[in-house]
Design a protein around this nucleic acid. Structure first.
Lengths: 344, 344
DNA sequence: AAATAATTTGAGAGCGCTCCCCAAAAATGG
DNA sequence: CCATTTTTGGGGAGCGCTCTCAAATTATTT
């Protein structure tokens, strides 16, 4: 049986309160007493009991990372590993712990029911001090609930509500840069494979595409816009549907979809970039590994994760700080071979 | 302020104990009372407070997934995403929660200190009911500690201790199959890029390699054995060192390393499989995406994760069940183009 | 030296839940 | 119909910690 505060107190010849003060770095303890207590703590290997502490302080030091929806695919996308790394790192750095809430991908059918259950269990039972939400569609029920329950949360992405804090990248500008790059290379029939249009990132990247075309005075051919789902499979399927309309360039709203599109193009006997230029989004490691290497829009995924956590911890530790916290990070166009750099 | 047990009890006109019984499905409550209590619970949205419950029951319903060491790279390997998915799924299915403990990859220097801290914080403070450990080197200090503290744990991999429970794949046989396949194709100068040799999987796969050669009466040329670290970079570097010895085939102990080797080979002007045959291990999605598609040894990664969790939960819920729990899953050779299937 | 202020310590009351134990009520049996 | 068993509900004592408040001690000021 591990020792309790009480026992440490007895051994050190002081009261519970004093040990508590020592453990929690309260100032008003005589140095010699403090040292004596530390000595006992060291010898006994005392460690405060998390649950007891949480019960008294009403804080758990646990942050949740919630990725709603049935997301088989989302997890084959390295985007998540990278985000997770950022999140985990920031948690470590600030002595918070990380609880991961994914949702079963096996049965999409009951996924909402499960999500509901998890929400109850995890959030209402106060396991978490706050949460980071990523990759949720805009109409996900989690947002209204979080707001109603006044759970501190930060979104990786965006949500149109005054009390929503978020960290996002400038998807519109990123997408516009990508498409403008294609335009500069002389393309006019530029197609796009969008992300899911119920997600902010999906919408924004499409918006960037539209803006770029508009800026160049090119009218949008709606047949060149096909909705994907951020997965490789989705990219393949979307590209399949685009083929009949013979685009000379394709902007895919994620690298995974670009890779899918690449395969479909190749299977159709088209060469990239010679016959069709291709640009992705994310700059995941795979982007530079495929053949040809993918021109893409880099977003600082890891940083997105760690900033979200830091914002959240700021919220948790200074609740009085009013105002909403929002950060938008820049993107960067990474030119590789897949877009076919032509002579000026 | 969310309602407490006490308040629910008052509203339902019963005592705390009765509500507790209802919530915890204890039998001895009259159906009509039970229904009345449920009704109040529903109306008030009551949810038991996790910390209070944990304090009383000494269980948290949280499982930890621990991936020790500074693992930048490990997380670019989809292996982890897939494992994580298995783990998360199993947790969801059994109403456990998942806490993720990674270690900062930024500063390798203080990684052991951090690991120590985390160990204290997470395990000794009883945040977790039990843990799943993956990808730990055999000499990782976590194993003796877990054993000493009697923390219930399951390893994904293996550890030579009588009280160590684990889930593993048959790495020796898997590797042997891979190498024997190359032997059957007529190769004799078969090199191997091993995993880290302080990890079980690294050792076992090397052992499989040796066994295959031995079975065919081919003596091992130690210059054809180069240690890698499971990363793509490591694979590149290892292949670089192998080039001078002109192997006609290479068995890489992970797909990521195989991909790295592939690039080095290509840069050296060698064609795969024509000049050098290549076999990997894991069968991550990338394996079928590279050119040429990788012949590899498939291991059921996701299942590994979920079985580990299920074993652990079994341990937690039936502590009396004596005996050690060990599962070894089979592997399967997946033949694709990279090994160059020759005519019989 | 006395009075006041500041610092250090301890006692006690929770935090919200579980679970043991006993009383009341209901069911059973002779 | 009363004694006995079984079911049902309630009271209370924790689980291990924090935190307020007041007492005790020490330092500072007049």
């Amino acid at each position: 049986m591990p020792p309790t505060l009480e026992e440490v107190a007895k051994l050190a010849g002081v009261s519970r309160s004093t040990v508590s003060r020592v453990v929690n770095q309260h100032p008003n303890v005589r140095p010699e007493v403090r040292e004596r207590v530390w000595e006992v703590i060291r010898q006994t290997g005392y460690q405060p009991h998390a649950a007891a502490r949480s019960l008294a302080t009403r804080r758990t030091q646990i942050i949740g990372l919630i990725i709603p929806q049935a997301v088989t695919t989302l997890f084959t996308d390295p985007y998540f590993s990278i985000l997770l790394r950022g999140v985990a790192d920031a948690c470590n750095a600030h002595n918070y712990h990380l609880m991961l809430s994914l949702f079963s991908h096996r049965r999409i059918r009951d996924s909402y029911a499960r999500q509901d259950l998890l929400y109850q269990q995890v959030l209402r039972s106060r396991y978490l001090d706050g949460v980071v939400v990523s990759s949720a569609p805009l109409d996900d029920p989690i947002f209204p609930r979080l707001l109603e329950d006044k759970v501190p949360f930060v979104i990786v992405g965006r949500y149109p509500h005054e009390r929503a804090n978020y960290v996002d990248v400038d998807n519109v500008v990123g997408a516009r840069m990508a498409v403008e790059h294609l335009l500069r290379l002389g393309h006019e029939r530029i197609a796009t494979i969008t992300g899911p249009l119920n997600m902010c990132a999906g919408q924004d990247r499409l918006e960037g595409y539209r803006q770029a075309l508009a800026a160049w005075g090119i009218s949008v051919d709606e047949r060149l816009i096909v909705e994907g789902d951020f997965t490789e499979q989705g990219g393949r399927a979307a590209m399949q549907r685009l083929l009949p309309h013979q685009p000379t360039a394709v902007f895919a709203a994620s690298d995974m979809m670009a890779v899918g599109a690449l395969k479909t193009l190749r299977e159709a006997g088209l060469r990239v970039p010679d016959d069709v230029a291709l640009v992705g989004f994310d700059d995941i490691p795979l982007a530079s590994m495929v053949d040809p290497p993918l021109t893409t829009v880099r977003q600082p995924i890891e940083q997105l994760g760690s900033m979200a956590v830091e914002l959240l911890i700021g919220l948790l530790e200074n609740p009085q700080t009013s105002g909403v916290h929002r950060v938008v990070l820049p993107t960067e166009l990474v030119v590789r071979a897949s877009c076919g750099v032509r002579v000026r």
